[in-house]
Design a protein around this nucleic acid. Structure first.
Length: 684
DNA sequence: ATTAGGG
DNA sequence: CCCTAAT
């Protein structure tokens, strides 16, 4: 369910709201700040989904999966891991946590320096660091040779369909004090010693993180308890009665009921601690580590258990993509809006130069074992576009999860773990926030033509949908041509359709790239589902929500990541301010109408009131935004229609804008005049 | 915290 | 949208 929730966001093109600038947020009203914080949490959620899916594993992992077979497998893996790590200078130990239960993950740690920040050795790292595995990939050092081993290992595991196997690399990190919640090193070490070599392990889902760390850094991204509150956000469905009143009118308040992402994220109930993660604490010391960390790729391995669990059908045929292009996502200012920051000064396509790489294998088949997986609005509606046919069969799909594309990070060795976290966070946020495209793959081929109907494309209800896959891809527009973008970073595979529910015909929100182009690096993604969740409730949104809450679609997320962005670690300069520009959220006509109405009534200059009256529910619209919008509206109204850009605003509204503007300007002038007179009188 | 304006 | 200055 948790996943579900997140999926919703992801699939709907939910854009992770940017973390507000500290300076800015500081100036914001508490309510706004709060909203932003919620946003952050949401962003985090996405990150979690994306980066790790471990959540799922954790939750659905059968607690008792230590069958002898499992153990055997584990032994194999374990030794493989050991061997692998023994090649590394630091002697590493493979530990299996068989803490009895939900997590039987294997951790690889450097005995001499183990920092399990914030968690005791007895605790499941996974539990506390769901993100770790995902993020860990960014901390490793490339090593081709190792990789093959890792792959081999992985593949073997895959074949055997072993259970979860998560290795965690930990290492020496000289600056981990940044974490308030971290336990003392001594204590940590002790704890580690206490539980040496455990051997059990194995679990459902396979997650192998083979990393070569020259100097492993512990990523302690403590994710919020992802959880829970599955309660779906109730979205105000409607609401805008707009009356055409003239300015000084009575009060028929008109509120833009907004279904704001922020708001809807009610499901994101996270411990307050989450914030810490997002809000980087003041940096400590300077980091000048020049460790180059680059992740290589994530592999996907099917999970036996999952398959078993899912009643759909045990055959998971994850669509694997070859990782050929490491998509270096070079963010543009837009996509990576961190202010005043240089991006990618370097980052050669193949950071092999002394870089670090790592093999991160992860099982992405997020099949909810509990079958609870239900639906999320993310599922694509498999309707057909040929809507005139009397009986139009519907295709049912279920998409369980998406992962975030791989990306690379470069950061100095001297960086603090905290800064690392921030860097990763920024990178992820940038990726997510920049908007991802959704790609559709049929039989492994990318389908591009958006205008074809599903039927024409070969996606029909009676087809075996296991050949259908979805993937999230970086927004091409943000990708500099120079860097050959990898193709689908993520692949989700849908397996057999599980007729559970019918979905409305394509709403047009779901765009698919249809095109049979086997060519991998073609990066022309289709329109991606953008977060059009602006405040104004739209029929579409509503319908989406409804359909969303229903049952599930069948989806088998098997994906393989390809690549992505290179995140330049902080350029020593202004790296501290994690300022991000807010995402752009064009005003909808509805909102404009509400704004116009409010201004007609309240006048210009009372933006606070306008906000309260008409946009109280639109968390992301600040009074400043409204004021700015009004400004642009006035401007728009004055220029010729040909010069206008963006979503056209009804002329009628623009006329009202001009009228209202003139009216209130006049009022303002009168007021001033009166004041002046009064003053003059007093002076006399 | 708001408002007003320039960028 | 952001940023600043001035309230």
């Amino acid at each position: 369910m948790v996943l579900q929730k997140r999926l919703d966001y992801g699939f709907n093109g939910y854009q992770v709201p940017p973390v507000p600038r500290a300076t800015r947020s500081a100036r914001r009203r508490g309510s706004f700040k709060k909203k932003h914080e919620e946003n952050q949490i949401c962003a985090f959620d996405l990150l979690a989904i994306v980066a790790g899916k471990l959540l799922l594993d954790k939750k659905i992992a059968p607690s008792s999966s230590n069958t002898s077979a499992d153990k055997d497998q584990c032994a194999v893996i374990n030794s493989a891991v050991k061997n692998k790590w023994q090649d590394v200078e630091k002697s590493l130990k493979v530990e299996a946590c068989d803490q009895g239960s939900s997590d039987n993950n294997i951790y690889v740690s450097d005995l001499s320096h183990v920092h399990r920040q914030g968690c005791s050795s007895k605790e499941s790292l996974v539990t506390q660091n769901d993100l770790n595995l995902g993020l860990a990939s960014a901390l490793t050092k490339p090593d081709c040779a190792e990789r093959s081993n890792a792959e081999r290992l992985v593949s073997g595991q895959t074949k055997n369909e072993i259970g979860t196997f998560a290795s965690k690399a930990e290492g020496d990190s000289s600056e981990y004090r940044e974490f308030g919640d971290c336990k003392s090193e001594a204590a940590t070490k002790r704890a580690v010693k206490d539980e040496p070599h455990k051997s059990g392990m194995v679990q459902s889902s396979t997650v192998v993180n083979m990393c070569n760390l020259e100097d492993p850094v512990v990523l302690d991204a403590k994710p919020p308890a992802l959880v829970s509150s599955d309660s779906r956000a109730k979205v105000p469905s409607c609401g805008n009665r707009i009356s055409n009143s003239s300015y000084p009118t009575n009060q028929d308040d008109l509120h833009v009921v907004s279904r704001d992402d922020d708001e809807n994220s009610s499901g994101c109930t996270h411990p307050i601690t989450t914030k810490k993660f997002f809000r980087p604490a003041p940096r400590i010391g300077d980091r000048r580590i020049r460790k180059f960390l680059a992740s290589k790729c994530w592999k996907v391995a099917p999970r036996l258990k999952d398959a078993t669990v899912s009643n759909s059908d045990g055959n998971f045929k994850p669509v694997f993509r070859k990782r050929q292009n490491c998509y270096r996502h070079q963010r543009s200012e837009r996509i990576y809006p961190f202010k005043k920051r240089k991006h990618f000064a370097y980052s050669s396509p193949s950071n092999s130069d002394g870089g670090m790489s790592c093999e991160f294998v992860s099982d992405f088949s997020l099949k909810g074992s509990n079958g609870d997986a239900s639906v999320s609005r993310s599922r694509m509606h498999g309707g057909q576009r040929t809507s005139f046919l009397p009986r139009d069969s519907h295709v049912k799909l279920r998409i369980k999860s998406f992962s975030v594309p791989e990306f690379l990070i470069e950061i100095p060795e001297s960086s603090t773990v905290g800064s690392l976290k921030r860097t990763v966070m920024e990178a992820v946020t940038a990726i997510l926030g920049s908007g991802l495209h959704v790609g559709v793959l049929l039989q492994g081929k990318k389908v591009r033509e958006d205008n074809k109907t599903l039927r024409q494309t070969g996606i029909s209800h009676n087809n075996q949908l296991d050949a259908l896959g979805f993937c999230l891809e970086p927004n091409p527009s943000q990708t500099p041509p120079s860097l050959s973008p990898g193709d689908s970073p993520f692949l989700l595979q849908c397996d057999t359709p599980q007729p559970i529910r019918r979905y409305p015909p394509p709403t047009g929100e779901v765009h698919q790239d249809i095109c049979a182009d086997p060519e991998p690096h073609v990066n022309n993604l289709g329109n991606y589902i953008e977060s059009d969740h602006d405040s104004a409730p739209s029929p579409t949104d509503t319908s989406m929500d409804k359909s969303t809450n229903s049952k599930a679609l069948v989806a088998v997320p098997a994906m393989n990541v390809e690549a992505l962005a290179v995140v330049p670690a902080h350029q020593k300069s202004k790296r501290s301010e994690i300022a991000q520009r807010r995402i752009r959220r064009p005003f909808s006509v509805t909102e404009v109408e509400a704004l116009v109405h409010a201004v007609e009534k309240l006048g210009t200059g009372r933006w606070r009131d306008v906000k309260l009256q008409a946009f109280d529910n639109a968390k992301h619209r600040t009074y400043v935004d409204l004021k700015d919008k009004w400004k642009t509206l006035v401007h728009t109204a004055r220029i010729s229609p040909q010069q206008r850009r963006g979503a056209p605003v009804p002329q009628e509204l623009l006329d009202r804008v001009l009228t209202a503007h003139a009216y209130w300007s006049q009022q303002q002038a009168k007021q001033q005049f009166k004041h002046q007179q009064a003053e003059t009188c007093l002076l006399l």
